[in-house]
Computed example of a mutant assay.
Amino acid sequence: MHSRLRFALGFLRGHQGVTVRNSILWADVAHPIMIGTHGDHHRNGDVIEELRFENIDILEHHEPQPNYWGAMAINAGDRNTVRNVVFENIRVEAIEQGQLLDIRVVHNEDYNPVPGNRIENVVFRDIHYAGKTPHPSRIHGFDNERIVDGVLFDNLRFGDERVEGNGHRALDINGYVRNIVFVKK
C-alpha cells in the first residue's frame, strides 16, 4: 500500500483536494512524501493544490543522494506550481541520511527539462522530529521569479527544542524565499 501511495503522489498532476491521514510511512531508501517533481512541461506545467497530510508517523528516511532528501518534500519542477499544502501532527523517527524538509523550486537535470514555477502557502503545524539533528532542511526558490512564498511554522520541534526563527541551524533558507512565519507561543 505504501509504495502505491508514493507512486500516486509522485505522479499527481493538476489535482486538488487530496488528504492523507492516519498513516505510517516507511520509505527506507527514498522519500516518504514528495510532491511536484513531474508535470506537463510542454504547456504551462500543472497546478497541484489543496493537499493535507495529517496524523502521520514517518519511520525512516535513508536517501544517499542529496537531491532527493526530505522526509516531507515539495520539489516543484516541470513548470509546476504547488500551493496550499498542510502538514499537521507529523512525527518523524530516525533520519539516517537526509533531512526533515525539502521545499524547493527545482531544475533537476535527471528528471526536469525546465524548472518549476513556484511554491506558495505551505503550513507545518505540530511537526516533531525525534532523532539526531539531520542535515539542515532546505527552503529554496530557484530565482527572483520562481520563488517559495508563504511558509508557516507552528510548533516545529527537533527533540525538545522548538524552532522559532529562520536562523536556526536546522534550516537552510536561500534568498528566493518570501514570507516565512514562525508562530510564537
Rank of each mutant, 00 (worst) to 15 (best):
V122I: 15
H128D: 06
V106Q: 06
P113V: 11
V177Y: 02
K185L: 09
I173W: 11
H107Y: 01
D126F: 01
P115T: 12
H38P: 02
M1W: 02
N67H: 10
V151Q: 04
P113L: 14
A73C: 11
A30G: 14
G39P: 04
F158G: 08
G17R: 07
V148D: 00
N155R: 10
N174L: 06
D40A: 10
E109N: 09
E93K: 15
L171E: 01
F124D: 09
D46L: 10
I24P: 00
N75Q: 15
V47M: 10
F7Q: 09
R13N: 10
A71R: 00
N75Y: 01
I58K: 01
N67F: 08
R91I: 07
I74M: 12
G116K: 00
N155Y: 07
F158M: 14
E60A: 12
F142D: 00
V85I: 15
N44D: 14
V92H: 01
I24L: 07
T81E: 12
D160S: 13
G45A: 07
N121E: 13
E161K: 15
P134G: 09
V82N: 04
I48K: 07
L25S: 02
R157H: 15
N121S: 13
H15I: 05
A30Y: 05
D28S: 11
E161I: 15
